[in-house]
Design a protein around this nucleic acid. Structure first.
Length: 302
DNA sequence: AACACGGGGTG
DNA sequence: CACCCAGTGTT
């Protein structure tokens, strides 16, 4: 894998980040956003909030404004809460062990391991859908726990012993990057290029397909991703979804001068006055906005 | 296990 | 306009 990675792997700018807080911010952003955009956003965000403490001291409004254009705005609040936890429980420094990382708001199994491996060199594997696909195929049929266990075992093994006899050990982050590159370039969702894969001799899927067609030269594409979508109840058109309404309201509130109360009246898209009030109440309950006695709204300053 | 959560990009 | 993307938290 490492030899393949050296020859065919990608060089992505986000992999050069080493500073723990920056890595954390990039990883949280890239949970939901194309890497090019999240990288650009991380530059702006980290200039505004260069340390956990600086974000911990900021208002929800400031965090949400800095999150503009990224979507999944709850992550801005979670990241702020994580920064506060880092300040309170870890003296303002990103914790170095997996269990501590997993307690942070918005940090789940993937992100905790991404930080632990990339920043601290811990022998764990961040398993996203791409790594999940590679290791899942390798094992044949495996549940999430088995895939995670294999991933962590691989990271541990290579970090401890090196990829082979008399070879230097590798950083766990390199193994993760190598698997992600393999997932993107070779072990693709629909048309995996098994003959080009360094893991092919060990792979359960390649073996079963090879048996099926009688050779490794002809590898059939996966028929997998069933697009099966209920035709009878089509997904709600975007402009009328609740997601859209929430995004629209947050967009308006972000645009208002900081601290100013905004009277939000009338309807938005397909949503009547009542739906708008309900959405504002929900946003208030979740900590995005505050409402005054007159029902006016602003991003939460507290 | 199912659902909610948001943007931008593509065809 | 329909559809795609994909980790975390809640129910």
């Amino acid at each position: 894998m490492l030899a393949w990675s050296a020859a065919h792997g990608r060089t992505l700018p986000e992999r050069e980040a080493r500073e723990p807080w920056r890595v954390l911010v990039i990883e949280v952003m890239s949970q939901q956003t194309q890497i090019a955009r999240s990288l650009q956003a991380a530059v702006t965000f980290c200039a505004r909030f260069p340390t956990p403490q600086s974000l911990a001291e900021a208002s929800p409004a400031e965090a949400v404004r800095a999150w503009a254009g990224l979507g999944y705005n709850r992550r801005a609040l979670a990241l702020r809460a994580a920064a506060q936890a880092i300040v309170e429980r870890h003296a303002g420094r990103v914790p170095a062990d997996l269990a501590a990382l997993l307690t942070l708001p918005g940090i789940g199994p993937y992100t905790a391991r991404a930080i632990a491996a990339r920043v601290h060199g811990l022998p764990v594997m961040p398993v996203d859908v791409n790594v999940r696909r590679v290791l899942g195929r390798l094992l044949g049929d495996a549940d999430t726990a088995a895939v995670q266990a294999l991933g962590d075992a691989i990271a541990g093994s290579v970090a401890r012993d090196g990829p082979g006899q008399a070879e230097p050990t590798a950083h766990p982050g390199e193994i993760a990057d190598a698997l992600m590159d393999l997932a993107a370039l070779v072990c693709r969702p629909r048309h995996p290029d098994c003959p080009a894969c360094p893991l092919e001799p060990h792979c359960a899927r390649a073996r079963s397909v090879g048996q099926l067609v009688g050779g490794a030269a002809a590898v059939a594409p996966d028929r997998r991703p069933r697009p099966e979508r209920p035709r009878s109840t089509p997904a709600t058109p975007f402009p009328r979804s609740r997601r859209w309404l929430r995004g629209q309201l947050l967009r308006e509130l972000r645009l208002a001068p900081p601290g100013a109360w905004l009277a939000i009246e009338g309807s938005r898209g397909m949503h009547g006055h009542t739906a708008v009030r309900e959405a504002l109440s929900a946003l208030a309950a979740e900590g995005f906005v505050e409402l005054d006695e007159a029902g006016r709204a602003r991003l939460a300053e507290g």
